[in-house]
């Protein structure tokens, strides 16, 4: 604080000797600008992140991105995507995308009992991913 006051003292003297100079800008006035810049950077970062996340043409090695890419191609909704993720987890696939190439994984007979309620959804998904003719 002492150091700050020593460094700002000559500036204060110079400004004070001009009668019509108006109120002088202090360091504290920059906070607003700083916050605006930070918010802008955060927004830009988020936009870039989202754009990059959805840019399927960029080179990368991300299995979840590939999963989303395949979901987009097949037009799967969020519940279906969540179901596929859960199924891949239950089937202990190393890559979640393996579910798109494993039709036998949709067979509910060897799944835990709580999956029996979702048998219909699984059957529909299997048809969408493997059997159904697309218009």
């Amino acid at each position: 604080m002492t150091a700050l006051s020593w460094s700002t003292w000559p500036l204060a003297e110079i400004g004070d000797n001009f009668p019509d100079s108006g109120p002088r800008l202090n360091w504290s006035d920059l906070w607003a600008y700083g916050i605006a810049v930070i918010v802008g950077a955060v927004i830009t970062g988020i936009v870039m992140f989202v754009r990059r996340r959805n840019d399927m043409t960029a080179h990368c090695n991300n299995s979840w991105k590939l999963f989303r890419e395949l979901c987009l191609i097949h037009g799967l909704d969020h519940p279906s995507q969540r179901l596929l993720v859960a199924l891949a987890s239950v089937r202990q696939f190393e890559q979640p995308t393996q579910i798109f190439l494993t039709p036998e994984a949709f067979d509910a007979s060897d799944l835990p009992p709580e999956w029996q309620a979702r048998t219909g959804h699984l059957r529909r998904l299997k048809m969408v991913l493997f059997d159904q003719q697309s218009g």
Binding site: M56, T57, A58, H59, C60, N61, N62, S63, K65, L66, E69, L70, I73, H74, F93, E94, Q95, T97, Q98, F100, L101, T102, V128, L129, F130, D131, Q132, S134
Partner: peptide, 24 residues
Amino acid sequence: PLQRTIDALAKSHNEAATPTLIAA
């Protein structure tokens, strides 16, 4: 649909497609 999946994996710029295909 399977053909669409295969085509997407064949053309994808995502390197994760290769281990997926190898596993399959």
